[in-house]
Structures are given as structure tokens and as C-alpha cells.
Design a protein around this nucleic acid. Structure first.
Length: 446
RNA sequence: GUGGCUAUGGUGUAAUGGCAGCACUAGAGUUUGUGGAGCUCUCAGAGCGGGUUCAAAUCCCGUUAGCCACCCCA
């Protein structure tokens, strides 16, 4: 009724003075970003705890690097022609004129830190773990954000297959500890500087003769990113792909042996995988082993849960001597969405069992002080100090699931006492305020 | 970047072009300073900008955002 009148009033004669209009701003998170609300935090806490444990177990030290770096680090590291650098990177110019970029991935920053801090003088390999936000200007959709969070593990300074496997093993242990069991590991080797170029040449000449038989998208790939030709889902293209030369046939002896050993160790560890000879990755620096982990067997769904591989040339590309390395990153949002889908129970953040209720000015003051004393004694106490009435406070105590309510009103404040109310039975007892902490401790033990 | 679908309180939803309702949540009350049920009341809504019409949540155009697919990836 009042609403209607308002509407008409606007068109007729406005009799009441109107409120001055404040210019409003758009109240909305920027595209592709999202808030992680309090009720979501238990998943994040859990994931972070599992990651921290895995890092300790497998001997990784935590490193935090800046969220932005010199843009050239990524152009050179991640690769000039990658999608990440070509269309997804966030760059900006500082007042001092530096060209910086929000990190689209961790590896270049970590390699930079490895070099900058002379970590080659530490016992090799150096094993590093990071966790935090990364940024890619991509078109958002399910499981894809412009600001998202990654878990990143790197082993720098070891050429042997053990490290390839350990990276995989570390992530597998994280997924298992989260009770996520149904995932699929796809693995491949894309060779090294010795053998990969030869393969690429052969692949190109194979496709060159058959360009009229593939989709337009593949014709574009032919120029831009030939390795991608291999995993086109178009039926017509698949026929061409099936007969195409395979990287595995072109690996040099060293790469072939390395890959063979990686697979053997995975077998020993009983880590199941699917060898996918068409798996390639979007970053330029990969050599030898590459892998991705997906929820489903057919790489459908919300994208990879994690991906990584060996990058034996990156450190050298930046500076200094040849330093082999391997690493991988997982998307935290995707893992958490997987976690939720599987209906896996995450323990709630424990709510306080004791709730403090205050009445009147004096009661409130004494309650605030007592509340602090409970904290010092390590007892979590709930409160609603902003509420004046005992009723609304008890209601909240009930909703929060408190076992004990402590009631401190005007009367109690004057005689230095406090009421202890058992929220289940409703039985109350008045005790001296100085004894209440011990009394509550006693009751919580029961 | 390309295409498709969608858009109503904080959440979930309803209404042939004709008074924007309902449920949940939140807040206040329901005889004194005592919660849980019931009841009463209150706050709160058409993403934005145009157009058609006597009249638009509804139809049209644009825009923004979300979702889905492609691309690519975490």
C-alpha cells in the first residue's frame, strides 16, 4: 500500500520533500573475481592444512613471491606465443614507468627467486611450495576465474626421473588425503631441444598435405600452435590425427629412457595413469614429462585440476648455468568444487560452547572484562554484546548451539555474581564471578 | 576473442501486458530479567539505459553480469 502511493506520488504532485539522491556505485565484484565467504572458509582451511602437511612430508619449503613481477619475466619464461602471455596477462605501468604484470602462474617468479637468492648454493635439488592468487584475463565460466588460487610445487636442480614422480606423488597424496579418489592422471613426454624440433617438423609436413581435411580451427592451429592439432575433438580431424606421427616415436634416447623410468616408478608406486601421446601444454618452457590431472576419464568437465611438467631450460634461459627442474600447479577453486561435488564432509570450525549474556550498562561492562578473561584461559565464548534484551541474546545462544549461557545482569553485577544456565536442561545456578571460570571449565569437561 | 541461454528482496521462487505476492533468512514483539514451538509485526526486490503502450517484471532494442559451448587452461 505505501509502495503504491509512493509510485503514484512520483507522477502526481510530490508533497513530501525527497531525500537527496546519493550517487551510487556498482556494488559488484569485478568480472571473474569472487568473494570467499565465512561459510566457505572451512574448505579453504582444510585444503591449506593438507597442503602444508604434504609440503612437510615431502620436504618442500614454503616460498611466497610477489603477486606481480616484471612483465618480461613472463614473456620470456612462460613464452611470448602462449595464450597466457598473448591474451590473458594483466599488465600495468607503475608511476616510475616499470612494466609489471600480475602473475598468471607461479613458476617464473619462483625461478627468479631461486636465481636471485643464489639457491644453487644450497644442497640440490631445492624443493619449494607456494600457495596464493594468480590472475588471468580469461572469459569466466564454471571453474574459471580471472583471479583464482593455485597450489604450486617445484623441484629445482635435479634432472632425474625421481623428481618428476615426486611432484606427481605429492599432489596425489594431497588429493587422497582430501578423500578425492576418482581422478585421472594423463601423462606424456614432449621431448627436449634435441628431439622436439624434429618431431614438430615432421608433424607440420604431415598436416600440410592434409589441411583440406581438417576443421578451420585446426588450420589456424597449424600456424599458431601445431602441437594442439593433436587433441582436436572434431571427428574429421581425429581421423587425420590417428595416423599422424607421434612424439613418442621421435624421442631421443635420453628422453625415451627418462620417460620410461618415470612410468616404471609410477607403476611401482601403484599410481595409475593414462599415457596420452596427444597431451601437450600451453606453456613454452616444458620439456620431457608433462601431465595433467582431471576429474573424469575423458578430460571433460571444468578443466584440469592440476597440471605441470619438467622445464629443464627455464633457469638457463633467465640466467646462469643449465639447471633442470620440474613442477606443477593445482587450481584450488577446482579442487574445492570437486570436494563439494563428492559430498565429502569437512569438519566445521568449532563454535563456542559457552555464551555470555549481559543486561544493563554495568552488566555489559563486567561482561566485556570477563569475556577477555575467558579468552586468556583458552575458553571460546560467544557473545551478542550489541543486543540489549536477554531474550534476543538467549535466542542467539540457542541458535549457535551453546551448551552453557552465562547471564550477568544489573543485580548480579552489584553482588559480583553470575548465573550459569545449562542450555539443555534449563537449570540455573548462581556463583561468585571469581569462581565462574573454574566452574565452566569443570562443566565443559563432563 | 566467437556463439547460445538467462536476469524479480540477502536466498529460493510466483504472477494472460493491468494493485509485484509467497517461503526462508534477518530484526522487533508475543505480561516483569530467560532460548527452542506457535502467533503478530517490520526491513528488504524488477541489473542498467532506451523504445512500444492508456498501462511493461512481462513485448522490442542496446548494455552489463552470470551460466553453457568453442578456444585455452588451474
Amino acid at each position: 500500500m505505501p509502495k503504491k502511493r509512493k509510485k503514484h506520488g512520483r507522477r502526481g504532485r510530490p508533497s513530501k520533500p525527497r531525500k537527496p539522491r546519493l550517487s551510487k556505485i556498482k556494488v559488484q565484484a569485478p568480472k571473474g573475481t569472487h568473494d570467499i565467504l565465512p561459510e566457505e572458509q572451512k574448505y579453504w582451511d582444510k585444503l591449506r592444512a593438507v597442503v602444508a602437511q604434504a609440503a612437510t612430508n615431502y620436504g618442500f619449503g614454503r616460498i611466497d613471491t610477489p603477486v606481480f613481477e616484471d612483465v618480461r619475466l613472463y614473456i620470456k619464461g612462460t613464452g611470448q606465443n602462449t595464450d597466457i602471455v598473448q591474451k590473458e596477462i594483466y599488465t600495468f605501468k607503475t608511476k616510475g614507468g616499470e612494466q609489471l604484470a600480475l602473475r598468471p602462474e607461479f613458476t617464473p617468479g619462483i625461478v627468479r627467486a631461486y636465481i636471485e637468492h643464489g639457491m644453487k648454493n644450497l644442497p640440490q635439488p631445492v624443493k619449494l611450495c607456494s600457495i596464493g592468487p594468480v590472475f588471468r584475463h580469461d572469459k569466466p565460466q564454471a571453474g574459471r576465474y580471472r583471479q583464482f588460487h593455485q597450489i604450486n610445487f617445484e623441484i629445482i636442480g635435479d634432472p632425474t626421473e625421481v623428481s618428476d614422480v615426486q611432484i606427481i606423488q605429492t599432489f596425489v597424496s594431497i588429493l587422497k588425503r582430501l578423500n578425492l579418489k576418482k581422478f585421472t592422471i594423463f601423462i606424456n613426454s614432449i621431448g627436449c631441444l634435441m628431439c622436439a624440433p624434429k618431431y614438430k617438423k615432421n608433424l607440420l609436413s604431415y598436416y600440410k598435405k592434409r589441411l583440406n581435411r581438417v576443421c578451420p580451427e585446426c588450420r589456424r592451429r597449424f600456424d599458431k600452435n601445431p602441437l594442439r592439432l593433436l587433441d582436436c575433438k572434431n571427428e574429421k580431424c581425429k581421423k587425420v590425427t590417428n595416423e599422424a606421427p607421434q612424439i613418442l616415436d621421435y624421442l631421443c634416447d635420453e628422453c625415451r629412457l627418462h620417460f620410461k623410468k618415470v612410468l616404471e616408478i609410477l607403476d611401482d608406486l601403484e599410481i595409475p595413469y593414462i599415457l596420452n601421446p596427444y597431451l601437450v601444454r600451453g606453456l613454452d618452457y616444458y620439456t620431457k614429462t608433462v601431465f595433467e590431472v582431471w576429474e573424469d576419464k575423458d578430460d571433460s568437465g571444468q578443466g584440469a585440476l592440476l597440471g605441470g611438467g619438467r622445464y629443464d631450460n627455464l633457469v638457463e634461459m633467465f640466467k646462469g648455468k643449465s639447471t633442470p627442474a620440474v613442477g606443477a600447479a593445482a587450481g584450488m577453486e577446482r579442487i574445492i568444487s570437486f570436494l563439494k561435488k563428492q559430498d565429502i564432509k569437512i569438519s566445521e570450525i568449532e563454535k563456542p560452547k559457552v555464551f555470555m549474556i549481559q543486561l544493563g550498562e554495568l552488566g555489559k561492562r563486567k561482561s566485556l572484562k570477563l569475556f577477555d578473561e575467558f579468552q586468556r584461559n583458552g575458553i571460546k565464548v560467544g557473545e551478542a554484546f550489541s543486543k540489549p534484551s536477554i531474550k534476543s541474546q538467549l535466542k542467539i545462544a540457542d541458535k549457535e548451539g551453546a551448551k552453557i549461557a552465562l547471564i550477568l545482569g544489573q543485580k548480579e553485577a552489584l553482588e559480583d555474581s553470575i548465573i550459569i544456565r545449562d542450555m539443555v536442561s534449563g537449570v540455573q545456578e548462581t556463583v561468585l564471578i571469581e569462581k565462574v571460570i573454574n566452574e565452566v571449565k569443570k562443566r565443559l569437561k563432563q
